[in-house]
C-alpha cells in the first residue's frame, strides 16, 4: 500500500528532529514532566504515512494476540512436565562387599533393577536396562552374557555389546563404600565409556586378601 513512501524506521526519528526542536532558540531547561517526543503529532503522522494508523493498531493487536496465544500454549506444554515425581529414590545400599561372590549378582535386580558384578579387581554395578530401547535384559550365567528379549541385543560380562542393535554398552552406576561398610550405589550417576567406567566412582577396587 504505502511501499513507495516507506521510510526506514531508524531514519524516522532523525526526520522528526527539525519539527520538534528549534536550533536557533537556546536550549530549554530539561523538563522531565513533558511526554516523550515520540508521541508527538508528527510521530503519528509518520506512522500514518507508513502503515496507516488503523493498520498499525490492527497489526500490533495481532502481534499481542499471537504473543499471548504462543506463550499460553508454550506454558501449557510446560504444565505437562511435572516438577515433583512419585518415583523411588535412585540411590540404595547394597550390603557388604564380602557378601558377594565373584561374578554377576542378581540380588538387587528385582528391587533396584541393577546387577552388581564382582571381579578379581573389585566391584561395579550395571543398570539392568538395555541401552537400545529400555527393556530389561536377562543374565545367562552359563553363556556369560546379558540378552535382551525385545530386539536381541547381547552384552558380555563387561557390558559391551556383542550382538544385536544396541548402540552402546550397558550403563554402569556409581558405586562406593559407605561409612557403615556397605556398598552404596547411585543410579543417577551413569557412565559407559571404556576407560572412564573402570575408574573413579564407577569402580570400587576390592581384592580378596
Amino acid at each position: 500500500m504505502t511501499t513507495t513512501t516507506r521510510i526506514h524506521p531508524r531514519s524516522s526519528t532523525r526526520l522528526m528532529e527539525p519539527a520538534t526542536t528549534n536550533p536557533a532558540a537556546p536550549a530549554p531547561a530539561p523538563r522531565p514532566a513533558t511526554p516523550p517526543e515520540v508521541f508527538s503529532e508528527a510521530f503519528w503522522r509518520q506512522l500514518e504515512e507508513r502503515f496507516g494508523r488503523r493498520q498499525f493498531l490492527l497489526k500490533s493487536g495481532w502481534a499481542f494476540f499471537w504473543l499471548f496465544l504462543g506463550g499460553w500454549l508454550l506454558s501449557n506444554l510446560r504444565y505437562l512436565f511435572p516438577n515433583v515425581l512419585y518415583e523411588p529414590g535412585l540411590s540404595f545400599k547394597a550390603g557388604r562387599p564380602e557378601d558377594y561372590a565373584l561374578g554377576v549378582s542378581e540380588k538387587f535386580k528385582k528391587e533396584q533393577r541393577t546387577w552388581i558384578v564382582r571381579n578379581e579387581e573389585g566391584f561395579f554395578c550395571f543398570w539392568a536396562r538395555c541401552t537400545h530401547l529400555g527393556c530389561t535384559p536377562n543374565w545367562f550365567e552359563a553363556e556369560g552374557r546379558f540378552k535382551c528379549p525385545c530386539h536381541g541385543s547381547n552384552f558380555n560380562r563387561a557390558g559391551d555389546v556383542i550382538a544385536g542393535p544396541a548402540p552402546k554398552p550397558l550403563w554402569r552406576c556409581a558405586i562406593q563404600l559407605a561409612d557403615d561398610g556397605q556398598l552404596i550405589i547411585d543410579k543417577a550417576r551413569l557412565e559407559n565409556r571404556p576407560g572412564s567406567r573402570e575408574q573413579g566412582e564407577f569402580f570400587f577396587p576390592y581384592k580378596s586378601a
Partner: peptide
C-alpha cells in the same frame, strides 16, 4: 523387572519394531 521373552508390540507396530533391529 521381568521382560517377557520375546516381547512383541501389537502387529501394526511390529514393522517398526523389526526396523529397530
Amino acid at each position: 523387572n521381568v521382560t517377557p521373552n520375546p516381547s512383541k508390540a501389537p502387529w501394526y507396530f511390529l514393522g517398526l519394531q523389526e526396523l529397530l533391529v
